[in-house]
Design a protein around this nucleic acid. Structure first.
Lengths: 245, 245
DNA sequence: GCAACTTTGTGCGTGCCTTCACAAGCGACT
DNA sequence: AGTCGCTTGTGAAGGCACGCACAAAGTTGC
């Protein structure tokens, strides 16, 4: 299977990609980052147990996740770090860069625009937008902030594939519609509203206020238990992927 | 609350809280926010179908979620908005405010510190920390930035219950240990590393780079399908809770 | 070349979450 | 009061994900 007697790696990829569970995709991204660190540390191979330990995942689950992308592990040895890294990048669609547009240069938008990790990970920020005249025209990290009205023209011209919305809630739906009009088919929404999109658009949402409330719930639960860690405390749950400051 | 193990009317809350599925808790927070908007719009009652529509959730799932907190719906009518809102706040532990400490005033940390939605939702920022001498001593949103070394003293003094880590990856574990030492039992981690915590500490992770990679995966999947939305496209997935810019 | 050890890949049981479908309950209207 | 229409709450079924445990496969040592 792994030794390519044929160059069939392509249809294999296509077939498998369809059937990867959503939960596994999220973890694959985490494995990929850890592999990057392992490469820097000069590791050549890594076992599922080792990689599972540093990513905080069950080893069997990790192996199953990797099996979805047709993994290239060597029994008795482990995985070749750089090969696995390359394989993961391919599976996650990082082989060709995705241009990203960010709308809403407020508090959070500014932080996102200044975040260096995007372009470093294959997601170059191709455009920034805001509606505030004081912001339009300035540069952040060398990128010009343009007016929201320019979204359709600019996005289709620069072949933006991913849009991030960091506007206040009320403005989000309008911005979303503009992005969809511009041909953007994947949107990451930080505004605290539920957006309506056509079926062909993929939408993900990140809501920090909700994240805090989930934590607050656990504080409350713990207090009800009398502060005593009952059998099931100490959970570690991850919502999604990391951002460096 | 040092309730006896069996305290008649109150044990309903305590018993049910324990058994709420994690997935439901996340949605309860979303319902709560939408209820807030409905209150502003002057709505007095809302049906499960209506609330499900605006939150993008299956109506039956919504009703089951509400049933976990012992809901007070009226058959044939719906839910009384303000009563349900109050009930949700109680269930999510928002009846008494949780002091929050934020460590790492970089790009993202600055955005988080400037976000007004936290204190407005029962999570006042009680302390800011950084290790950079240029940042220590300044004020953000009227809150003093203190040195990381002061974490144990300040956090226990101000009864911080929730910690947010927005430092660069390498610094996160050290900061995390300090927070735990200070008695913080709930931590929201934005740094792209897997933190180790004692069992009694609740840890959640938000990783924006992973979020983007999940979107990129779907772009890749779509391209493999020839750009044609196969039967299962158009997913709407939410990672977690929103943040206004 | 053989045996012992290591690690992958996966079949399978278990439990959680989602969704359907319907009975029970409540209000409105006559 | 009785009936009709609407909405909640939940039993049950299906699907998904997790994790154990083991066979297959490769490596190391003799």
């Amino acid at each position: 299977m792994t030794k390519p007697p044929q160059a069939g790696s392509d249809d294999t990829t296509a077939e498998r990609l369809r059937s990867i569970p959503e939960a596994s995709v999220a973890r694959l991204a985490v494995y990929l980052r850890m592999l990057g660190e392992l490469v820097e540390q000069g590791a050549e191979t890594v076992s599922s147990d080792e990689l599972a330990a540093v990513t905080g995942v069950n080893p069997a689950k990790l192996r199953k996740d990797l099996s979805y992308i047709g993994s290239y592990g060597i029994r008795g040895v482990g995985y070749e770090v750089s090969a696995l890294q390359h394989r993961l990048e391919l599976a996650l669609g990082l082989n060709h860069r995705q241009a990203v547009a960010l709308v809403g240069i407020g508090n959070l938008g500014h932080a996102l625009a200044g975040y260096g990790g995007f372009s470093g990970r294959g997601f170059p920020l191709a455009a920034l937008f805001d509606i505030d005249p004081d912001l339009v025209g300035i540069h952040i990290n060398g990128i010009l902030v343009e007016h929201v009205d320019a979204i359709p023209a600019v996005c289709s011209e620069r072949e933006v594939t991913i849009g991030m919305i960091a506007t206040p809630g009320p403005a989000a739906q309008g911005v979303c519609d503009l992005l969809v009009t511009a041909g953007v088919r994947c949107i990451l929404n930080f505004a605290p509203v539920v957006l309506q999109v056509p079926r062909e658009v993929e939408l993900r949402k990140v809501d920090l206020a909700v994240e805090l409330q989930i934590l607050a719930f656990h504080v409350a639960r713990r207090n009800l238990n009398g502060g005593q860690p009952s059998s099931l405390n100490g959970h570690v749950v991850n919502g999604s992927g990391g951002l460096e400051a």
